[in-house]
Every structure is written in structure tokens, then in C-alpha cells.
Design a protein around this nucleic acid. Structure first.
Lengths: 79, 79
DNA sequence: CCACATTTGTCCGTATGTATC
DNA sequence: AGATACATACGGACAAATGTG
């Protein structure tokens, strides 16, 4: 059986952290470089994570500043 | 003004076609190779489009078979 | 204003795996 | 067996926004 793809697993973990309160609305995620190191994946995979989380409005990406978590209450679904 | 990124523009066009009825629920999208040719982008960009559309449940991806449009009424939002 | 470092943003080409026909 | 098609992941190139000095 196929293991869960990295980009699904990582976005689910971030979503879980936000729902549990470990990440709060407005919190800035680690930089892409740090997330790459933390999860041992490439930046392309992290970008996939961001596209997926952004599509459901779970994060807010601001070029040059960072990626910020939104309030889970406003998410379109639980990824 | 920043040009709209390809993966946003393409997923918006597909969404518009589905909403207008040009694409109907259950319709199969052209193959990745055909979409690459049609929009003159790489397969990586098409995969970004798919991840984005799948996140809002606008498409259903079936490995080896194709990518199918869902009913816009069930989408999580209008991309 | 300018230079620089940091960070995110987009896109590409390729490799490999898996499912279907 | 072979062809087709989608799935995941990588690494790199370059652009754009921000902040600091």
C-alpha cells in the first residue's frame, strides 16, 4: 500500500497543530528552508503543501515576509 | 500589476468552464500532456493546478484513468 | 537612495513509481 | 507485455517583496 504522500502528511500535521492550538491564528510558520530541513523534503514539496493549505484558506502567504496561519474556524475544510 | 500565475489562471479557467456548463460533472479533463500543450506550460504546473482544484474538491483524480470534474454545487469555494 | 541578505513565489525538466487499459 | 496516464518528489533557476544597514 502506498504510504501517505509527504505533501499530504505535512499539510495534515500543520493543520493538526493549528487545530490543537499549538499554532495560533496569525502565527508565522518556519521558513521554507527550515521546513525542508525539519521534514527532510525539497522546497518543491513544501510549495505543494502551501498551495494545498492556501486553497482551503488555512494559511496566508506573504512574499518576502512569511506564511501565516489563519483561524481554523474560517477554513473551508479539514485537510 | 503582477500577472496572474499560470497555475492560478489555468485552475480558474477550468473552474469557469465547469460553472458555465462547458464542463459537466463527471467529465474527464484532457490528459496532462494535452493540457501542457494547450496552455504551453510544464507538467509540474498542471500538477499544481490539480492539487489546487482537488483541495477544494472541484476535481477527482484517479491514477491511470484520468481527472474528473465534480459538481460545482459541492465545491468548497469558487476558485 | 542603494546594496545586501532573507524569504517567499513561480516555473521548469527530469526521474521514478503506480494504476489502468 | 506494452502503452497510456496520473502521482510524487527533487533540484535548480530566476523573480519579487521585505527588512536592514
Amino acid at each position: 500500500m502506498p504510504a501517505t504522500p509527504d505533501y499530504i502528511r505535512i499539510s495534515d500535521e500543520i493543520a493538526t497543530d493549528a487545530r490543537s492550538g499549538k499554532l495560533k491564528p496569525g502565527d508565522k510558520l518556519p521558513s521554507i528552508a527550515e521546513l525542508c530541513a525539519q521534514y527532510k523534503v525539497s522546497s518543491s514539496t513544501i510549495q505543494l503543501v502551501f498551495v494545498r493549505l492556501e486553497a482551503i484558506e488555512a494559511i496566508n502567504r506573504r512574499q518576502g515576509k512569511g506564511v501565516f496561519v489563519t483561524d481554523p474556524k474560517t477554513w473551508l475544510r479539514k485537510p
